[in-house]
Amino acid sequence: MSVSLYYSARRDTPLSPAENDAVQQVVTARGATYPYDDEEGLYLYEPGEDDPDEVLSGSTKFTNDPARYLPQTRHLLGSMTELRRAVPDAEWRVAIDDSEIEWEEPVGYTLPGLDDPDLQAELEALR
Results as ranks from 00 to 15, higher is better:
Met1His: 09
Ser4His: 07
Leu5Asn: 03
Tyr6Lys: 08
Tyr6His: 05
Tyr6Thr: 11
Ala9Ile: 02
Arg10Asp: 10
Arg10Leu: 15
Leu15Cys: 07
Ser16Gly: 09
Ala18Tyr: 05
Glu19Asp: 02
Val23Ile: 06
Gln24Ser: 14
Val26Lys: 00
Val27Ala: 10
Val27Asn: 06
Thr33Glu: 10
Thr33Val: 15
Thr33His: 09
Tyr34Ala: 13
Tyr36Asn: 01
Tyr36Pro: 00
Leu42Ser: 14
Tyr43Asp: 14
Leu44Trp: 13
Tyr45Thr: 09
Pro47Thr: 06
Gly48Gln: 06
Gly48Glu: 05
Pro52Ile: 11
Asp53Pro: 12
Val55Ala: 01
Leu56Gly: 10
Leu56Ser: 09
Ser57His: 02
Ser57Val: 01
Gly58Phe: 01
Ser59Met: 10
Thr60Glu: 01
Lys61Ser: 13
Lys61Gln: 07
Lys61Arg: 15
Asn64Trp: 14
Asp65His: 14
Pro66Glu: 06
Pro66Leu: 08
Pro66Trp: 13
Ala67Tyr: 04
Tyr69Asp: 10
Leu70Phe: 15
Arg74Ala: 02
Gly78Leu: 00
Ser79Trp: 06
Thr81Ala: 05
Glu82Asp: 09
Glu82Ser: 03
Leu83Asn: 00
Leu83Gln: 00
Arg85Gly: 07
Ala86Ile: 01
Val87Ile: 04
Pro88Ile: 03
Pro88Leu: 04
Asp89Asn: 09
Asp89Met: 02
Ala90Val: 02
Trp92Cys: 03
Arg93Ser: 10
Val94Arg: 01
Glu102Tyr: 14
Pro106Asp: 12
Val107Tyr: 10
Tyr109Cys: 01
Leu111Tyr: 06
Gly113Cys: 06
Leu114Trp: 11
Leu114Gln: 12
Asp115Lys: 05
Asp115Ala: 09
Gln120Cys: 04
Gln120Lys: 07
Ala121Val: 10
Ala121Leu: 06
Glu122Ile: 12
Leu123Ile: 03
Glu124Met: 12
Glu124His: 08
